Computed example of a mutant assay.
Amino acid sequence: MGGTVLQPSAAVALEPLHSLRVSVTHHPGTSLFCLLIDALGMPGQGVPPTLRQAVRSAVPADDMNRLAPLLEGYGFPDCFAPLAGPDLPSGLERLREQDLSEVSEQARGWYESSPAPAAEWARVIERPAPYLAAFARVFSAIWEAYAVVWQRAQPLLWRETERVGTATVTGTLDVVLAGLANPCWRVEHDTLYCPPLHTARTPCREAGQGLVLAPLVCGSATYSISSDGSAGTRLSYPAPGLALIPGGDPVQPAADSLTILLGPARAAILRLAAHTPTVGEIATALSSGSATYHCRFLESAGLLTRRRRGREVRLHHTPRGRALLDLMS
């Protein structure tokens, strides 16, 4: 049973990275769901206050009250999400026009396979029409408040597509995957590990299926893992460099390929490592208190190593790190 679930636990086989089919999709559907969850007062999404207020002011209160009990498990079946189409309004129209018997069947499958509130989902299975209409109205209202943010973020999303493409052709996809959502996600031996948070639902990924990366434009702390049908497993995560200030400046393009791949701080550290600095020297050069965190990430990605020189421990490029720096220069 396919569906959208926020922040599950999973161990996603990447089998092996050099032949893994990876794609990037730009669709606001999951971002809309995250905004809906946030509007209901559920914590953990990292939505900016200005955007949160705009969404809460837009959504119909009666519909929100109807849907709230259904979303206690931070998820719902795909039949209640905006369906795929050339644009979001057409996806919402397709959502409204679904066959009610099929919606009821999907709701039944979701109820039987997930920790959903029994009484409320029994009502959905019996009479899906009011709930389908409520989801459509709520998502339409959220989209009205959110569309300008989504449009302004398009350069950022295309930058992320370029970053994933660069990682794929340079053999550094593990570096990108390990830093997608938060420090808890990690890649080890062709497996992406995601620890338990709100729910323990674990999607299955069959051998030979691909990986779909879906950068989100809604909050700094929202991510999910779900099935994407025959395409494989979908990883949804905050788009790197996310800045959601309505009316703010457009996203500026990154200066170079290494910055696109690693981000500005990690790219700068990899370049500075040519001079075999200490972590303290890195922190001073970048005027950053997060230098230790970024250095550890680059070490775990196999790009840097530490060597003791007398009383000092200095950073050095690994052969992989040197090769990546040469390739991106």
Rank of each mutant, 00 (worst) to 15 (best):
residue 266 R to V: 00
residue 317 H to A: 09
residue 39 A to C: 13
residue 288 S to C: 15
residue 278 T to G: 12
residue 213 L to D: 00
residue 119 A to F: 12
residue 195 P to N: 06
residue 25 T to P: 00
residue 278 T to Q: 13
residue 172 T to Q: 14
residue 270 L to G: 02
residue 118 A to D: 10
residue 197 L to D: 13
residue 17 L to E: 05
residue 48 P to A: 07
residue 153 A to L: 02
residue 197 L to C: 12
residue 193 Y to G: 01
residue 141 A to Q: 05
residue 179 G to W: 04
residue 45 Q to D: 12
residue 135 F to H: 11
residue 138 V to M: 03
residue 198 H to K: 09
residue 130 P to V: 12
residue 101 S to I: 02
residue 291 A to G: 09
residue 103 V to P: 10
residue 34 C to G: 11
residue 312 E to D: 13
residue 56 R to Y: 02
residue 135 F to A: 15
residue 174 D to V: 09
residue 164 V to K: 08
residue 137 R to S: 10
residue 190 D to R: 04
residue 127 R to N: 15
residue 268 A to P: 00
residue 254 A to D: 09
residue 123 R to P: 11
residue 251 V to H: 10
residue 140 S to G: 13
residue 268 A to Y: 00
residue 8 P to N: 03
residue 222 T to R: 02
residue 195 P to I: 12
residue 180 L to Y: 01
residue 205 R to Q: 15
residue 313 V to G: 04
residue 192 L to W: 04
residue 194 C to T: 04
residue 194 C to L: 13
residue 171 G to S: 06
residue 145 A to D: 06
residue 161 T to R: 07
residue 14 L to R: 05
residue 158 W to Q: 11
residue 318 T to N: 04
residue 290 S to H: 15
residue 106 Q to W: 06
residue 143 W to P: 08
residue 166 T to E: 08
residue 268 A to D: 08
residue 112 E to K: 12
residue 194 C to H: 11
residue 151 Q to G: 13
residue 11 A to Y: 01
residue 127 R to S: 15
residue 78 D to P: 01
residue 11 A to G: 07
residue 255 A to H: 02
residue 73 G to M: 12
residue 193 Y to T: 01
residue 147 A to H: 09
residue 83 L to D: 04
residue 46 G to R: 07
residue 48 P to Q: 11
residue 249 D to S: 14
residue 287 S to K: 11
residue 51 L to P: 09
residue 73 G to S: 10
residue 193 Y to N: 00
residue 121 W to Q: 07
residue 157 L to V: 12
residue 228 D to W: 08
residue 184 C to T: 10
residue 256 D to F: 01
residue 226 S to Y: 01
residue 325 L to V: 08
residue 54 A to S: 13
residue 98 Q to M: 04
residue 246 P to S: 10
residue 110 W to Q: 08
residue 291 A to Q: 13
residue 40 L to Q: 15
residue 86 P to I: 02
residue 211 L to A: 01
residue 138 V to E: 02
residue 274 A to N: 05
residue 30 T to R: 06
residue 190 D to H: 13
residue 191 T to S: 06
residue 144 E to F: 02
residue 275 H to Q: 15
residue 239 A to T: 15
residue 126 E to P: 15
residue 135 F to E: 07
residue 220 S to C: 04
residue 76 F to P: 00
residue 123 R to S: 10
residue 225 I to D: 05
residue 80 F to S: 12
residue 156 L to A: 12
residue 11 A to K: 06
residue 24 V to W: 00
residue 263 G to P: 06
residue 282 I to S: 12
